[in-house]
Computed example of a mutant assay.
Amino acid sequence: MKVLLTGAAGFIGMHTALALLARGDEVVGIDNLNDYYDPQLKRDRLAHIEQQRPGAPFRFEPLDVADQAGMAALFERERFDRVVHLAAQAGVRYSLQNPQAYAQSNLVGFLNVLEGCRHHGVAHLVYASSSSVYGGNQKMPFAEGDRVDHPVSLYAATKKANELMAHTYSHLYGLPTTGLRFFTVYGPWGRPDMAPMLFARAILAGEPIKVFNHGQMRRDFTYIDDIVAGVVATLDRVPGPDGSFDRQDPTPASSWAPYRVFNIGHSEPVALMDFIGALESALGREAVKDLQPMQPGDVVATYADTARLEDWTGVQPAVSIDDGVARFVAWYRAYFKA
């Protein structure tokens, strides 16, 4: 297939590109290479794709999904079979200081993707949602049928908005869409604003790590390979109308339209202090912990019910936290020569 991959220079994007190329798909990747974090890491990810798959049908174009004219021209020119939309302004805490960036990338950008798919016969759009849509929910594990009406960050609100926008296009234009609610993805080539990278750098430098909510946090840490396996398997299964959908008792997870939403996580939440312990073991150093209060927009725990995705794709998470952290640390040491 010919696949448009937005956010191709991102953490999940790079790994997804490699998986699609490995099985013979043609991939056109776009990214705006912004400076939310060091663009050199993004350029190095793109170089890694070329190094790992030399001669593979991969092309990269620097393009912002919020560029309406540029996106329209791209869809007109390339005629994609399917789209994997991973580009977004990420980060919960950053959304407190820079809300406009989220409106442009996550709302305007997603609308441009939907319009491109609508007008050019794309057979399936798979897009990144987030576990953050569960907001203040305390029922565990989080299930796709749960109400998600109480976001606690603008980032979460934009991701829920994406699901609503996708449903509208699935209903009005018959566009098959699948949203994937990612749960705390980690691994090699990860984002430097996320805990694994922040903690590894500080531990190796002998500096304190900020441990929020005094360490009383749990996260459904999910290794990147397990995430990508779910993305690719989902791309291959195009949703149709859900014949069991009940308009008298509607679920947010499906529809009379060709629309689905799935959790994608490890389904085994890990205490933050245990994750730090795994990092300490892999790095061979003890962390200096600076215990901090809860941050605005954050949640105490995440825990994915992944039964629906497993039923839909047959994919199950396979990488344990100890194995995943060890792989991440090996990459970190090699990349940063640490």
Rank of each mutant, 00 (worst) to 15 (best):
N137C: 14
A88W: 00
A326C: 13
S105I: 08
P241Y: 03
L272D: 09
A22W: 05
N137F: 10
Y94A: 15
A143K: 09
Q68L: 03
P293G: 10
S105Y: 03
G215Y: 01
A90H: 03
V152Y: 03
G121N: 07
A22H: 15
Q248W: 11
Y36V: 02
P99E: 14
E115F: 09
K289L: 12
F336I: 05
T177Y: 00
D31A: 00
V228A: 07
P62W: 00
D242W: 07
V319A: 09
D81K: 05
A73G: 14
Y94V: 10
G297M: 01
G243I: 13
V133Y: 10
V319W: 07
R53A: 05
Q295P: 13
A200R: 03
M14F: 03
T6S: 04
M294D: 15
V3D: 08
L41V: 06
R201N: 11
V65H: 02
D236A: 13
F110Q: 02
G206M: 06
A157L: 06
V315C: 13
V261G: 07
A47T: 07
H119K: 14
I264R: 02
S105A: 06
G7A: 06
T251F: 11
P39I: 05
R77K: 12
N106Q: 01
W331T: 03
R333Q: 11
P258V: 00
G277K: 01
R82M: 08
Y335L: 10
N98G: 02
F262R: 04
P258G: 00
K210A: 15
Y332P: 04
T234G: 05
R247V: 10
H119I: 15
E76M: 13
E163C: 11
Y94K: 15
V148R: 15
P62Q: 09
D146Y: 07
G116D: 02
S132L: 07
Y223N: 06
T178K: 00
F80M: 05
E76R: 09
